[in-house]
Write a protein that binds this DNA or RNA. Structure first.
Lengths: 236, 236
DNA sequence: ACATCGTCATAGTCACACTGTCAAGTATTA
DNA sequence: TAATACTTGACAGTGTGACTATGACGATGT
């Protein structure tokens, strides 16, 4: 409802421009003047919506990270089996980052190392996703899927760290012609770690593989749920 | 000559102060004025040694990363077996980062996401180490230690990514009271990945474990070499 | 017609990276 | 000791860019 019908509100245009410029040039090098020109608004207008340049930076991921968390938390419960859940969470993650390079550059290169960002609503959403992943790993250890002596925090760091590392390099060295996309590396990555932590036998030969194509199933699931819900009105 | 005999040259004092302040407050927030006071020199003196604030930032890791590469490349050839080599490289890495938190904070939080840093001698040294690791992994795949269909780049990203991820979190959320140090997680981490990529049998039960204590062995090795001839020709 | 709100333009403040200058050391040499 | 070259420090600037303050303009609603 609200102004979703409008092409873009001023605030959205500012955030879009800022995302692009912050991601491409870096937070420090980007100037408010440049963003205002790109967004087609005056400098003063930016300061009417965002208190400081850093507030603008932090405002960008807030929406998208919450949306992603909502989406994933609608889907994950319907997946049976710890391994499948973990696959799904990581697939969400990789898809989000790969489909929105500006966003992943912002989060991984500009925000990751910002201490103030950690006290931000956007970071809280990211932490929630991370916590769900941890819970899945813990469950897997308890229910005997994974070895009893596994350290769930280490496993999470291995999963997230590998993915983030791949994306950081994807961004830093020109990412144009890459033979294998990061999404293609996700299954081998998960398989190596699962192989390393699985309790014993391989009788679970019916492992649920989630490949990118399956992601559309998620989307269909959303559409069903969304159609009935009443949106919240925040316009004022 | 000059003042090399002195405990610290001016240049060293500046870099020491800059390392501490950059690591603790971040590159942007740190001011040249503050660094000059901390180092006990005037602001203008800093600009005599370093063209810009960023040049100062880049100058800091150059020495230490080259030293580390030299050290490790003297030791690695003497370790037999791919797995042992990989363990040793990662142990070097973790030891360096853990024993010098300011340095690891600088590299991981300030420099990692700086595109200009990638065209820097310091980064070249880091890349060299990374390349040695990759070569070890490739060798392991070729000689049958690891599965034939392993992706060596992925494996390297998994190893480095996990370690870096652990350190980044170590820095970001207060790292004071951590029950398990990162070095303690290194063996489990490596074991999970090796388990996941090892070709077949576990007949290599005599895996060479390198724990932190063994690192002194490295040191002794250096002393022997350093005191003797200057044979810098790396073995073949 | 009038008030209100959102937006823009402009001018100004302030912090900080960086430069230039010159005087005061400090070391080296005669 | 004295002349020389080189190094360092104090300090006064310049330029840029974040951020503020103010007033004008246009659209909207009463």
């Amino acid at each position: 409802m609200t102004d979703k019908s409008r092409p873009k509100t001023r605030k959205d245009r500012i955030m879009d421009a800022a995302l692009r410029i912050f991601a491409e040039k870096g937070f420090q090098i980007a100037t408010i003047t440049e963003i205002s020109k790109e967004a087609g608004v005056s400098e003063a207008t930016i300061y009417e919506y965002f208190g400081t340049k850093e507030d603008l930076l932090f405002a960008i991921p807030e929406k998208i990270s919450n949306e992603t968390f909502e989406k994933s938390s609608k889907v994950i419960p319907y997946i049976k089996g710890v391994e499948g859940k973990i696959r799904a969470i990581l697939l969400f993650y990789v898809q989000l980052y790969q489909s929105n390079p500006h966003y992943s550059a912002l989060v991984l290169l500009q925000l990751m190392s910002n201490k103030r960002f950690r006290h931000t609503p956007a970071h809280a959403a990211i932490r929630r996703s991370s916590h769900v992943l941890l819970d899945c790993i813990k469950t897997g250890i308890e229910d005997g899927t994974f070895k009893k002596d596994s350290n769930p925090y280490l496993i999470r760091s291995m999963l997230m760290g590998a993915i983030e590392h791949l994306f950081i390099h994807w961004h830093m060295q020109g990412m144009p012609k890459r033979k294998t996309s990061i999404a293609d590396m996700l299954d081998p990555l998960i398989e190596i770690i699962f192989d390393g932590i699985r309790a014993k036998k391989e009788e679970s030969g019916t492992t649920l593989y989630l490949k990118l194509e399956d992601a559309n199933v998620f989307e269909k699931l959303f559409q069903k749920k969304d159609s009935g819900a009443s949106s919240k009105d925040k316009n004022k």
